[in-house]
Structure formats: C-alpha cells, structure tokens
Amino acid sequence: DAHLPAVPAAAQTPEALRVRFAHPPRWEPEVVLEKKFMNREPAHASVLLAIMLREQPTVLLTERTAHLSTHSGQVAFPGGRADPGDATAADTALREAQEEVGLAPEFVDVLGTLPTYVTGSSFIITPVVALVRPDCELRPNPYEVADLFEVPLAFLLDPANHRRHVFDRDGVRREWFSMPYQDSRKNHFIWGATAGMLRNFYRFMQA
C-alpha cells in the first residue's frame, strides 16, 4: 500500500492526537470482522493502544507467552476480557494493562476508542487509545507476556509498511494485514487482529 499517504508527523503530536479524538472526522473502519475459526460464545474485551510519549512517539506491544489458550505467541496490545466490575471499555483496558505489563493508570491519558473489532475466536474487542507518560515503570507479567517492545508510531501510520495477505483453504478465503518490524533485538511479526486494529487507526488518523 505504498501508494497510500502516510499520516503527517504534525498529526502525530500529543496535541494533534487530542484534537483528533475530541473532534473525530467522518470515517469508516477498513477491518471489523474476521472469518470465524473457533466456535465459542462471544466475549467482550478491550485492548490499550498505548502511545508512549517519547521524543518520537511509539506504540507499546507485547508478545504473548506460548502456553496461553488463545492467540499464544502472537504480538498483541495489552488487554483482555471484560470483567463484570468494569464500567467502561477503558476500565477494562486500564485494568488489563496494569495486570499484564504493570502500567499504572495514573500514567495514562485516555483519548477515546476506535470501533469494535471481532476476531475469528469470537472476541468483540474495543481498542482504547491513550497517551502514556514515558516515566512509567513497566513490569510484564511473565505468565502472560514473553516480550515487551515499542514500535515507532510513524512506522505504523505509514501504509508502505503494511502488508496484505490472502489465504484460501477448504473453500474459505481469509485476508489479513501484517506490519513486520525489526528492532535492534529481533524481528517482530505484527499481524491478525493487532494489525487490523492498527490499520483502522491509520484510517482514522488519515480521514
């Protein structure tokens, strides 16, 4: 998708992001529903699309541990299933982020939410977008998180770094995005629901 424009740097500042969520444009998400691959009751969940306020903003991502029952080993946002005590999607995302990576809510400034994304495993996910102070201390839960890393926001908001995939099996056509990213330590393969929600974030920012 290198023919599509990247989101300008001026639109990625904390002030610009606050204005964008305070006065959102008319837009349509590009990816909202995956092909179902697991028969289970739908469950509501939230993830935290955490923008770390570094000199060049980054997005916080995790690599899930291999033994988890769903989406094991995959790159994901901090987040998880809603609890009955959660009043809002943001409450879920903040609680889960604290449980998973040790991110205390006082370091987080929630901007708003993106449209829900329904995974093939029947999770109805609300992405909660937030700014995070860089002086926070992160302590990943080793049971859930195998790795913690950050990707430049500018990289994720440039569609030249987005890849499209198509897979046909047993007459079922599946399509998804990926955003492979290499840092100084390893290659990170961002794909599936995480990449789909980031693609929607790009569409929201570019609208």
Rank of each mutant, 00 (worst) to 15 (best):
P14L: 05
G102V: 07
R163H: 15
L153R: 06
P57Q: 04
E100D: 12
A11G: 01
H23V: 13
S46L: 02
F77N: 06
I190P: 02
M197R: 03
P24G: 10
R20Y: 02
I125L: 10
P78W: 04
A89V: 04
S122C: 13
A50S: 14
L61H: 04
A93F: 08
H71F: 14
L111A: 06
A6R: 13
P8A: 05
A146R: 14
E137Y: 01
L111R: 12
H165T: 05
T116H: 10
W191H: 14
E28N: 06
K36S: 09
A160I: 00
A89R: 08
L49C: 14
L138W: 07
P134E: 14
G192H: 12
E41K: 15
G80M: 08
L198M: 13
F21A: 07
L49P: 05
D91R: 06
A2F: 03
V31R: 11
Q56P: 00
I51P: 06
A2I: 03
E137P: 00
Q182P: 00
P25L: 02
T194G: 09
R199H: 11
A195Q: 06
E175T: 14
L148E: 03
H162V: 08
L148T: 05
T113W: 00
A43F: 01
K186G: 00
D168R: 13
V47C: 14
V32N: 04
P29E: 03
L49E: 10
L33Y: 13
L198S: 06
G192V: 06
D91E: 01
M197L: 00
V59G: 05
I125D: 03
V75F: 10
I124Y: 08
N161I: 00
P5Y: 09
V110I: 05
A93K: 06
N141W: 07
N187L: 13
V101G: 08
R163D: 13
Y181H: 15
V172E: 14
E41A: 15
Y117P: 05
P180V: 11
R54N: 13
A6H: 01
R163L: 15
H23P: 02
E28G: 00
A160R: 14
T119N: 12
W176M: 05
E15S: 06
S72R: 11
A2Q: 07
A16Y: 05
A16T: 03
L49K: 02
N141D: 15
L131T: 09
L131Y: 12
L60H: 05
L17Q: 06
L153Y: 03
L157M: 14
A82G: 01
L17K: 02
V166N: 03
E30F: 00
Q98R: 15
P142C: 07
F149V: 09
L148R: 04
D183S: 02
V166C: 11
S121I: 01
L157Q: 10
V75I: 15
M197Y: 01
A66N: 06
L4A: 13
A207M: 09
G80F: 02
N141Y: 10
V172S: 09
R164F: 13
T65K: 01
N187S: 09
P127N: 08
P78D: 09
E34I: 10
L60M: 13
I124H: 10
A207N: 06
T62W: 01
R81Q: 15
P57G: 06
